[in-house]
Computed example of a mutant assay.
Amino acid sequence: MPIKIPDQLPARHVLEAEGVRVMGETDAVRQDIRPLRIGLLNLMPDKISTETQLARLLGATPLQIELTLVRITDHVSRNTSADHMAAFYRPWSEVRNERFDGFIITGAPVERMPFEEVAYWPELRAIFDWTQTHVHRCFTICWAAQAALFHFHGVPKHNLPRKAFGVFEHRNLAPTSPYLRGFSDTFDIPVSRWTEICSSTLAEVQDLQVLADSAETGAGLVDDRAHGALHMFNHLEYDSDTLAGEYHRDGSAQLPAGYFPADDPTREPKNRWRSHAHLLFANWINEIYQTTPFDLVAGLAAEGQAVLA
C-alpha cells in the first residue's frame, strides 16, 4: 500500500521518482480500510531531507500510512522556510487531542546541551507523557531517544571526547524480538552524535532491553516495553550521502569511520544499511498493525486509562 502525504510536499516528487507509491487525498478516501495514522515530530534542522527519508521507509511497507507532520508549538525553525512549515506542519497543541497508531520523534542539534536548557524541553516532556495515552507505539531517534530515556527512566547522557561518526557494525542481541525479525547477526548503521547512553546504565533498568549494540559506539537500539517505545540512538534512516554532507558542511578533520571507500572523501560512499533500514521500519509498522485497536479513539482511551491506573 502507498503512503498518504500532502500533494505539494517536496518529498512526494522524490519518492514518486524512486518508485514509492504515494497516495493523494482523493484516492485514499476510496479505499474501504483504515490507514495507520503515523505522526512525525521533526526536530532535525534539514526538515525536508528528514521528511523524505522517513516517508520513504514508511511508504515501502505493505500497509496504507497516513503521515502527519508535527512541530513544537512555539519553536521557530531557523533552517526551514516559514512557508514550508505553515503549509505542511501542524503544531502539537493542535493535534494533542488526536490519537495516533505510531509516532516518530527525531533527533535535534542540541545534544551537548543539558536537557533542561533546551528551549522546548517542557513541551517535549509533555509530548512524551501524551504518547502514553494518545499513541499506540512510539519510535524515537538519536537525541530524542536519549531524551525519552532521561524523561521516563532518569537515564543520563554523557558527552563523548570525540564524535561518534561513521558507519559501524552492530550485533543483533535479540533475534527473537519482533523489531529484529529477519535481521542478520551483524549489520551496519550510520552514527553521528556527540553523546552516548552507557550500556551499563541501561542494564540496570528492568523495563529496558538492548536489542543491538556496537563495540565502538555502544547501545544502538533499545526496546522500552513499559512505554510502548523503540529507541534508536543512530540513523538507519540516513541517505547514502548524509554523512558526507555532514563531513563537508562542518569542515571537520574527522573522517566518518568505515564510510568513504579507502577513507577517501572524494569517492562515493556505498550504502550498506538500506535493506536493514527498510526491515526495521517494516517490522515496527507490522508490530503496530498486529496490536493496534481498529477503533483508535476507544482503544487508546482504554490503554491510557490502564497506564494512568
Score class of each variant (00 low, 15 high):
residue 209 Q to I: 12
residue 187 F to H: 11
residue 163 K to L: 12
residue 258 G to P: 09
residue 292 T to H: 01
residue 114 P to T: 06
residue 125 R to E: 14
residue 13 H to L: 15
residue 237 E to F: 05
residue 206 Q to E: 13
residue 279 L to N: 02
residue 210 V to C: 05
residue 160 L to E: 13
residue 99 R to F: 14
residue 230 L to D: 06
residue 300 L to I: 03
residue 34 R to T: 15
residue 270 K to Y: 06
residue 166 G to K: 08
residue 214 S to R: 02
residue 180 L to K: 09
residue 292 T to C: 05
residue 174 A to K: 06
residue 45 P to C: 11
residue 23 M to H: 01
residue 57 L to I: 15
residue 235 H to N: 08
residue 270 K to T: 13
residue 242 T to R: 14
residue 305 Q to M: 10
residue 64 Q to L: 05
residue 277 A to W: 08
residue 147 A to N: 14
residue 85 M to E: 10
residue 48 I to S: 07
residue 146 Q to N: 14
residue 1 M to C: 06
residue 304 G to D: 03
residue 233 F to W: 10
residue 62 P to D: 10
residue 27 D to C: 06
residue 282 A to L: 06
residue 45 P to E: 12
residue 5 I to C: 12
residue 279 L to Q: 13
residue 92 W to S: 00
residue 67 L to K: 00
residue 19 G to K: 15
residue 188 D to L: 14
residue 88 F to W: 07
residue 39 G to N: 07
residue 37 R to T: 07
residue 141 I to T: 04
residue 73 T to V: 02
residue 138 C to S: 15
residue 90 R to C: 01
residue 244 A to E: 11
residue 210 V to G: 05
residue 240 S to R: 15
residue 222 V to G: 13
residue 125 R to G: 14
residue 238 Y to M: 10
residue 165 F to D: 12
residue 163 K to M: 13
residue 8 Q to N: 07
residue 2 P to H: 01
residue 70 V to C: 04
residue 151 H to T: 12
residue 181 R to V: 05
residue 32 D to R: 15
residue 92 W to L: 01
residue 117 E to V: 12
residue 14 V to Q: 08
residue 258 G to D: 10
residue 109 P to F: 05
residue 128 F to W: 09
residue 265 P to N: 02
residue 249 R to C: 01
residue 74 D to I: 01
residue 104 I to T: 01
residue 142 C to M: 14
residue 214 S to T: 02
residue 170 H to Q: 06
residue 93 S to N: 01
residue 58 L to F: 09
residue 93 S to K: 00
residue 198 C to L: 15
residue 273 W to A: 03
residue 114 P to D: 14
residue 298 A to K: 11
residue 294 F to C: 05
residue 64 Q to E: 06
residue 272 R to H: 14
residue 158 H to Q: 13
residue 269 P to N: 03
residue 156 P to K: 06
residue 170 H to W: 04
residue 103 F to R: 01
residue 164 A to P: 05
residue 114 P to F: 08
residue 253 A to C: 02
residue 216 E to V: 13
residue 80 T to V: 05
residue 15 L to A: 14
residue 177 S to P: 04
residue 137 R to D: 03
residue 140 T to F: 11
residue 59 G to A: 03
residue 226 A to M: 10
residue 71 R to H: 04
residue 298 A to V: 06
residue 260 F to Y: 10
residue 6 P to L: 00
residue 179 Y to M: 14
residue 137 R to H: 10
residue 135 V to M: 05
residue 276 H to F: 11
residue 122 P to S: 14
residue 273 W to V: 03
residue 174 A to C: 02
residue 159 N to P: 11
residue 214 S to A: 03
residue 38 I to E: 05
residue 63 L to A: 12
residue 257 A to I: 10
